[in-house]
């Protein structure tokens, strides 16, 4: 048992809980319908609404997130442009900000 500031944590208790819950899950699962067959649409992922950009590849699995965060990622892409001069620019900016903060406060 380790105290973690405001609470405590014990991996063994966690593992016992996991074991108990998985037993319960197995019991519930064994009560289920036995005659399920994988038909055409039942096992497919369901996408609702909007444009569907996914090309059935795992790479595109977060396309909605990237779509929503488009402006952020555009800005980030401009920031990570791979030019060494800009790396130096960010460092100079950091030094100026740190000096400013340390001296003024």
């Amino acid at each position: 048992m380790i105290s973690t500031g405001m609470g405590s944590w014990s991996p063994l208790v966690f593992l016992i809980c996991v074991a108990f819950i998985s037993v319960v899950v197995q019991i519930i699962r064994s009560l289920g319908e036995g005659g399920f067959r994988k038909e055409e649409d039942k096992a497919e992922a369901f996408f609702s609404g909007g444009r569907l950009l996914i090309k059935n590849r795992v790479m595109d699995v977060y396309w909605g997130f990237f779509d929503a965060m488009g402006r952020y990622y555009g800005w980030m892409k401009r920031m990570h442009n791979g030019i060494v001069n800009d790396y130096v620019y960010w460092f100079v900016l950091l030094v100026t900000v740190v000096i400013g903060v340390v001296i003024l406060l």
Partner: peptide, 9 residues
Amino acid sequence: DTRKMRLKG
């Protein structure tokens, strides 16, 4: 030219 660097993103 440093602007022709290829590692980015």
